[in-house]
Write a protein that binds this DNA or RNA. Structure first.
Length: 570
RNA sequence: GACUCGAUAGCUCAGCUGGUAGAGCAUAACACUUUUAAUGUUAGGGUCCUGGGUUCGAGCCCCAGUCGAGUCACCA
């Protein structure tokens, strides 16, 4: 491992601290009495409460002026300025603590604990006059320095998305606002959870490793269980398990679930993502629509200071309930002029052709309709809109429409032209369900690699009887994107999936020494071959000649090699 | 998958008919007792993503690759 100049200096500082008897990584905790936020918000009203404060955090900047100096301390709440005065920190003759430890050995990025009193500087900034400080953890790698001036201009921002996502810890430390996004995400989830709990629904956990990946149309990740010697799949949905629980007598269950889909990645798709699914017995999709819009309105208000309107890109989206409801066939009629109700597969193909939508042989009716809707209608629904009553072919787990058996009781919630939620009156007729699965099997044989598998255990559960049930799933990542106004899913996931980092190990002379090359020759061998592997590929005679050649050329002051020497190394 | 753009110091970026690299911040040293992107002076710091090619000579031109970003397609 080769270290940069600054990394070496920090290791030296680490040593210097230890030589002074200061442990840079102490085992003890540090008692914290205040946070930066508390001090900044309450000091002016009651300064008497802040004559003795202890807080801990990371040093974010340092400014020294002779016998006094400043630093910014960032704790989990905010940043606050520290004032270090030499004679305050070092009341006695020995000024080491100021001159050496504070001035030279304390680096940006270090965690320290400080004790002192709060005051206001001449410049009017609330600061802590430090009486004593304690190293809590030394930082060996320099953080990128992002500076903001009085006008709020940001300098040298740490912006490279690759580095920000790969090293989210750094992103969180130096880029203001990143943490807020994730705090909001957390709040969205807890707000939703509270809403469900208040209705008496039960949060449950269901298997992530599934023998049959059911509940959605998607390509799964496959893995293998050694003891059972069977393939297992990472779940693409948890729907079928939650419905089993309704069969078992739960009235309302929900789960915040990580789902996994082995498909493309882009700024709206990550291989693992979070979906909340909820199932409520004795309800239908009409009820669920009303429940969903009220729930969303509630969540949006909670995370958005009581406002239902949120900015998304250059638009504003209003989550005020009730949302508009449009049947999918009406939507298609409105945006394409075609009435596709009752059309067969061939007729739909013709419509696609006239609309300029590409199709292929593997597409059934469902996919064709989905294409038309996705291509021509979906982008038009900016404000939250329920699209309802999908054709039966598109929804194999959904109950047929009470008024039209060619349709289903399903809705999707479209926001900003994207699907945010999906819900059904759940199919609980086991015979119908079996028939629908069998249609999926035919699609699969036709080449649709996303068609659903038949889950016989799920059918068996339905045969015992499932009460009428409404179910709904909502994409938490997408919801978070809307509510934080981010245009990519990577911004709302702490650790989005990335291609593995290439760790190109740079060979050093030491590697050659380890391989048996004498130290005298290691640098030359590195020069000649670049890596141990390359050298091993060469013949001993070639190595012998090449290295001696190099010795001559570079006038190395070392004895010439014999062939026997070289044979001894490899 | 296609196209476009990018990769140079710890970070943000510059670089020129093709002549072995430069700024700001960060770092180090000195000065300075309340600074505000602190300041002033000085110094150090680089496999210019990788591999080939053209050339007397490549960070720059050509080819191939890696990684990333954006647009589109595919996929939900």
């Amino acid at each position: 491992m080769s270290l940069s100049e600054q990394e070496i200096q920090r290791r030296q500082a680490l040593e210097a601290l230890r030589n002074l008897g200061i442990e840079p990584y102490p085992a003890e905790g540090f008692e914290v009495t205040h946070t930066a936020e508390q001090i900044l918000s309450a000091f002016e009203n009651s300064p008497e409460d802040f004559v003795n404060v202890k807080l801990a955090g990371r040093i974010m900047s340092k400014r020294i002026m002779g016998k006094a100096g400043f630093a910014d301390l960032k704790d989990h709440t905010d940043r606050i300025q520290l004032y270090f005065n030499r004679d305050e920190i070092c009341p006695n003759e020995d000024k080491t603590l100021y001159n050496e430890v504070y001035k030279k050995l304390l680096d940006i990025g270090d965690f320290i604990g400080v004790e002192g009193s709060v005051f206001v500087t001449r410049m009017g900034e609330i600061s802590i006059q430090v009486r004593s400080f304690t190293f809590l953890s030394k930082s060996l790698k320099p953080l990128p320095i992002v500076k903001t001036d009085a006008e709020g201009n940001v300098y040298d921002a740490f912006t490279d998305p690759e580095q920000r996502y790969r090293q989210r810890y750094v992103d969180l430390v130096v880029n203001p606002g990143v943490k807020e996004t994730f705090l909001k995400r957390s709040k969205i989830i807890s707000s939703m959870r509270n809403y469900f709990d208040a209705h008496g629904y039960i949060e449950v956990e269901t298997p992530i490793l599934q023998p049959i990946p059911g509940g959605a149309a998607a390509r799964p990740f496959i893995t293998h269980h050694n003891a059972l010697d069977i393939p297992l799949y990472l779940r693409i949905a948890n729907e079928l398990y939650l419905k089993r629980l309704i069969v078992g007598g739960f009235d309302g269950v929900y789960e915040f679930a990580k789902d996994f889909r082995n498909e493309g990645m882009d700024r709206t798709h990550n291989p693992e993502f979070t979906v909340m699914e909820i199932y409520v017995a004795y309800k239908d999709y009409q009820w669920m629509m009303a429940f969903t819009e009220k729930m969303l309105e509630h969540v949006v208000k909670e995370v958005n200071n009581g406002d239902t309107e949120v900015p998304v890109g250059d638009r504003k989206i209003n989550f005020q309930a009730p949302f508009k409801r449009v049947a999918i066939l009406d939507a298609i009629k409105e945006h394409t002029g075609f009435d596709i109700a009752g059309m067969n597969e061939q007729e739909l193909r013709d419509v696609c052709k006239q609309l300029g939508i590409e199709t292929d042989e593997s597409m059934g009716k469902a996919k064709l309709i989905d294409e038309i809707f996705g291509e021509k209608c979906e982008p038009n629904y900016i404000q939250p809109t329920f699209i309802t009553d999908y054709p039966v072919e598109m929804s194999p787990l959904c109950k047929k429409h009470r008024n039209d058996p060619s349709l289903t009781e399903r809705f999707e919630l479209m926001v900003n032209g994207k699907e945010l939620a999906n819900a059904y009156t759940e199919l609980n007729d086991p015979i119908d369900q079996r028939a629908r699965f069998e249609e999926q099997l035919q699609l699969s044989e036709k080449g649709d690699d996303e068609a659903m598998f038949i889950d016989h255990d799920f059918l068996r559960a339905l045969e015992y009887g499932m009460p009428p049930t409404a179910g709904m799933g909502i994409g938490i990542d997408r919801l978070t994107m809307f509510l934080t106004n981010k245009s990519s899913i990577q911004e709302v996931l702490f650790f989005p999936q990335m291609r593995p980092e290439k760790t190109k190990s740079v060979p050093t002379p030491a590697d050659f020494v380890k391989a048996g090359v004498p130290e005298l020759w290691a640098a030359a061998a590195l020069d000649a071959y670049g890596s141990v592997e390359e050298m091993r590929k060469a013949k001993d005679t070639q190595i012998h000649q090449k290295l001696n050649g190099l010795r001559k050329k570079k006038k190395l002051d070392i004895p010439a090699l014999s062939l026997e020497d070289v044979q001894g190394w490899i």
